[in-house]
Every structure is written in C-alpha cells, then in structure tokens.
Design a protein around this nucleic acid. Structure first.
Lengths: 342, 342
DNA sequence: TATTAGCACTCGTTTCGTTTGAGTGCTAAC
DNA sequence: GTTAGCACTCAAACGAAACGAGTGCTAATA
C-alpha cells in the first residue's frame, strides 16, 4: 500500500491533535477539524489503512488511534524538512556572558525546561582536540607536590602527589622544564611508552614522580568520566500521566535524571554521529536506554569552536511538541553561536 | 492531663504500627497486638485523651489515628534515649579508601538510600578553619596567567587571569614570593584592606594582578557556593503515597532534590547547631523548607578532623523508621571515623 | 472508680450494575 | 470512490448499596 498525499495529511492531523490533547483521536474529530472535507467514514477507512501500515495504533477496540513510534518518526522527519518556526524567548537570556561556565549551563537547562515544560539536560563542553598546554609542579608542603595540568581550552586539572621528602627548588625547576619541553602541544595519542621511558631516564631518581604526573596527564586529557551533565525540570516529567501512571516506571525515570548515567549514553552517541542540522530525535525505543522507551528525546550538539562541543537535550513524552522543541533548540544554538564565535 | 506510663505505651504502639502500615490505626488493633491486656474501649478512651493532648490526629471521623508532629517528636526523643540498635550492613563498604572524594560521597549516598529505602543526601566536607597554604601564579600563554590557590585541607582552586602582555619570568617569581610570604597561613578574617594595600604597593605596576588574585583567594576560602551536595534515591520518594498522591506536591519534592538549593538550608543549619550525638531530626514543619512539610529529615554531621566537616541526611515520609535510620547514620559516622582518624 | 461490653452512628472504600458516549466496521446507497 | 446509517464494542463515568473499620457513649461489672 502506498502512503499517498491524503493518507499523509490524515496521519499528520491525527498526530497533531494527539500531541495537543494526549487522548486517542477518532475519525470524527479529523473529519471535522481539517480542511479535507471528507466524512468520518472515509477517514475511518483511511485510518484503518494507516493502522495496517503501522503508523497508528488502537489502544483498544472502541477507541481512537494514537501514533506509533513509526508514526512519530514520519511526523518528525517530514516536519524537519518543512518547518522553520521561530522561538525568540531565549534571546537576551544569555547575555550576561561573564558568569562561570557551570552556572551558565545550569541556567540554560533551566530556561529550556521552563520554556518547553519538559525536562532538559545539558553537558559541559568536551574538548576534543585535547592537547597539553602547560604543566607545573609545586612543592606545597614537606610531603606533597601539586601537579597542575592545563589542557587546550583551559581545562585545568589538579593532582596531589605524595613524596617521601621535599624536593629542592632547583630539582623542581628542572622537572618542570623537562615536562613542559617534552609534552607541550601533544595529544594523548602522541605520548607513547618510549617517550615516557626517555623522560624517566632524564629524571633520574625522580622517575617515580614522572610516572605519577603522566598518570595525571592521561586522566586530565581523557576527562571522560567527569563529563558533567546538568539537568533541570525533572518535575515536569510528572506532568505527563502516560509516563507516571505506573509508579515503578516513574521511579526509573526519575532515577535516570538523578544518576545521569543513562544520559551519558545519549551524549556520547550524539557527539559521535554527525548530522547537518545537528539535531537528532529519538522516539521511544529508538533511545539507547530501556527505561526511556515511553519518552522522546531531542538532542542538539553545540559547538563553541576550538573543538569545544557539548550536547543539549530535551526529554518529554512521545507526544511532545516536536515543532516547538526543535525550534527552541535551534534558536539556542544560534544564540550560543553568536555569543561565543568571537 | 498527664502523660502517664500507660498512655505512653499506647502512644508508642500507635506510632510503631503506623510506621509499619502507613494506615491510620484503630483502638482494636492496639488492644489486640500489645501486651497491655486492655479492651479496645479502654484504649479508645486513652486515645481520645492522647488526641486531646495533641499527640495523635484523626484524619476523619470514622478512621483510626495517626501521629501528629508532636507525637513523632515524642517518639523520636524517647527512642533516642532508649535504643541503640546496630546496623552493620555498612561495614566494609567504605574500605577502598583511595578512590576520589566525590565518588566516595556518591557511593555513601547510594548505600544509604538503598539501605533505608528513603532518599539520601550528603555534602562534601567543608573546611572550616580555612587557612591559605600556598599560592602560585604561572604564565600559561601570552595573555593568560593561572593562579593556583591551595587551602588547608588540600582544597585547590584555579583561576585564570587575563593580562595585557606576558610577565617575564623574574617578575612572576617576585610576585609569587610576595604573595606567599604575606598571605600564607592566614584565614579570610586576617586578610584586611591595609594588608592588601601594602601588597599592591609592593607589586608596583602589577597591582591589578594582585587585586585579581585576592579576589580569587577570597572565593577559594569561602567556597560557600560550591558546597556540593550529592543525592541518591530520589525515586524512593515515589514509594510513599502520602508524599506523592498530590502531583503538584510530588513535583515540588522532586525539585528539591534536583535544585539542591533547599537542601543547603538543612546543611547550613545542621552545621551551625552543635549537639552531642551529632544527629538531628526534623519532623514535618520543623524543617526550614516549606515543600518538605510532609517529610521528615534526619541529619548527621560527620567530622574528618582538621576542621573538615560535612552533613549527611536521610529524607523520607514522616512515618519513617526513625529507629533504623538513626542506627544506620550512627554506624556510618563510626565507619567514617575509623576510616579517617589516622 | 476503673474497666469493659454493647450498640448506634459515621464515613471512607469497595463493589457492582447501569448508563453514556466516543469510536469502530460494515453495508448499502449515492 | 464517497458517504450515510446502523449495529456493535468497550472504557469511563455514575450512583446506589453494602461493607467495615472505627468512634463515642452508656450502662453494667469488678
């Protein structure tokens, strides 16, 4: 069977009304509130076809239809082509630039959540071309040496090293120079075992410290685990009965937002895939996380230049207002662009 | 009217059964399941008295009684004197010492939450006698200077300063020495305007940098806002219908755990008050946060020595198992003690 | 005087049959 | 191909009735 123009229009109408009401929608509604001028009977026939084709589902015999995942997918795909709505509520909300990155991120999440009435998440930017920029060892007290490591993009990592006895000023200086001259500008792939061996040899009796520093450097550069995720509007989840009528399920969802572990999966997935618009939509079981199979997730990748990239996401029920959400995210991307591209 | 021995026993019985069932408890239940050997009628009379005295409440005319805040308060207070149960599930869970502080904290919260079936929170330790230990300025690149500030207890703070043009090596060294000799070992109260003026004068043309460093130092020492709070088991809240039957209310609660702002209030309050056991119980509206007026919160202060102190808290319904919760917290405190006091 | 049995009364909860109405599928007519 | 009409289905809403847990009061009892 073919998905002709009329079927497509009906499907769109069904989905759109369902998004608004959250109730199964019947043939009569469609017949009345579209400009197709078809009787409910005709619509019924078409809807029957659409159900057969898997776009819509009847929750029980005498109820209207609701979109299936496939239906939502169709809707989102066509919509992405067609629409380009503007949402300018975000404008001006990001102007106070000089605040710290993490408060900024929190606020962005917050704005998104209140704006859309869904839950929002945002990751701190990741630095992809992680090159070492600066290393410094300092004697803090008798038994402790502080290693400060700065990576491209000004991510700073501190690490305390224990030593048996204090190093004198000169040795410290020598080690600092040694480390900086050999490691600066290198990425993690470029630091190999041979180089490490060489460094240790040159450090002589202090080779143990070199090992520890290298470990710290490795950690600083990969910085994978401390990918921070900020969330906001978890409470909004509770607003959608279809997500929370089952207590068990609701709990799992809340947990997703608290643990943030599952959110990681989206982030890594999103960051790896590349799409032109930078916006991706996961509907129901398309999500890599089991407990979100009744949700939809819209993610966007932001890019602050210099390899600093992060992910923003909106999580809501499948009947989310894709149109608005995608619009909002696009606007946000633009805002971030104009704010940081200079 | 006086709260004699028998009334006390009945009150305790009422509360205990209510804690188990979560349902209002009636006179018959008490008469049957206690060793008082009194008929339900007698119990009724006594309960009527107890209600008059404000310890218990009748949610509606033909229902059993539930404890009032005052009733809980009585229960908790007497229990604190009497009981000393042991909960040793926590033992051995904290042994792997060498992990990072924040993963440790997360795990503690997690253990507490799963152990009690309530929500748990824990703050990173605060450093109260905040004395400056070490300052270091380094030229990272042409226009940026990194200030590293180490505070007693090895809390490290980094701050990037912008400069018009790079400082030569010697000046940097001079500034470092200047800062360290004058500021080391001082707490925030001891750094006054006169001293700052003196420093600036000695720094000559680089006085602007001194200002920025001082700002960074102030921020590092107070470190008030980045009091991190880790939570776990928010989902458990959903298990108690009395907290979540009202959607609006449930949302607010979830929000408390996401925003963490309200949790701050407990922490600061708990840290300021000093009690012998270190354990505090907030019942219902005793809590400083409006949206938690149907909850109870049990907090404990842990002390890792050297002025490093933090707060742990369990949040649950008013009918929480105070006995177990307090026991668990006490065990935890002991664990932390033996783990760090060396 | 304290305790208890008994009884009438209250009121939320449960149960169950009924009604309602939205929606469908099918068929026959246009 | 489209539509009107009709019988049928079924979840949800409604409402009366029964239930039962619990109370307060009173009169009898120890």
């Amino acid at each position: 069977m073919e998905l002709d123009e009329r079927k497509r229009k009906i499907l769109q109408a069904v989905i759109r009304t369902y998004l608004e009401t959250g109730e199964p929608v019947g043939s009569r509604t469609i017949s009345k509130y579209t400009d197709l001028n078809l009787s409910s009977a005709t619509i019924r026939n078409e809807m029957s076809d659409l159900e057969e084709m898997g776009y819509i589902i009847q929750p029980h015999t005498s109820a209207g239809r609701i979109p299936s995942d496939k239906g939502y997918r169709f809707y989102v795909d066509t919509m992405l082509e067609e629409k380009e709505r503007e949402v300018d509520e975000l404008k001006g909300l990001l102007v106070e630039k000089d605040e710290k990155m993490d408060t900024l991120l929190k606020r962005v999440a917050n704005v998104l959540a209140t704006n859309t009435n869904y839950a929002a998440m945002i990751t701190a930017p990741q630095y992809h071309q992680n090159k070492l920029k600066f290393i410094q060892l300092s004697q803090v007290d008798e038994h402790q040496i502080l290693a400060v490591i700065v990576v491209e993009g000004n991510v700073i990592k501190n690490s305390m090293l224990r030593v048996e006895e204090a190093l004198d000023h000169e040795t410290l200086l020598k080690l600092n120079i040694l480390l900086n001259t050999h490691l600066n500008g290198l990425s993690i792939e470029e630091i190999n075992l041979g180089m490490i061996a060489g460094l240790k040899k040159q450090a002589g009796i202090h080779s143990a410290i070199i090992s520890e520093v290298i470990d710290a450097v490795a950690e600083a550069i990969k910085s994978d685990e401390d990918l921070k995720i900020y969330t906001s509007g978890t409470r909004n989840i509770l607003k959608y009965p279809e997500l929370t009528d089952n207590r068990e399920r609701a709990g799992e969802l809340i947990n997703v937002f608290e643990e943030k572990k599952s959110l990681h999966e989206f982030v890594t997935e999103t960051l790896s895939e590349e799409k032109n618009t930078g916006i991706q939509v996961y509907i129901g079981s398309e999500a890599p996380v089991q407990s979100m199979k009744d949700c939809s997730v819209v993610t966007a990748t932001y890019d602050l230049g210099e390899g600093m990239r992060g992910t923003v996401g909106i999580i809501g029920p499948k009947r989310m207002d894709y149109d608005k959400v995608i619009g909002t995210l696009k606007t946000l991307m633009n805002e971030l662009d104009t704010l940081y591209k200079k």
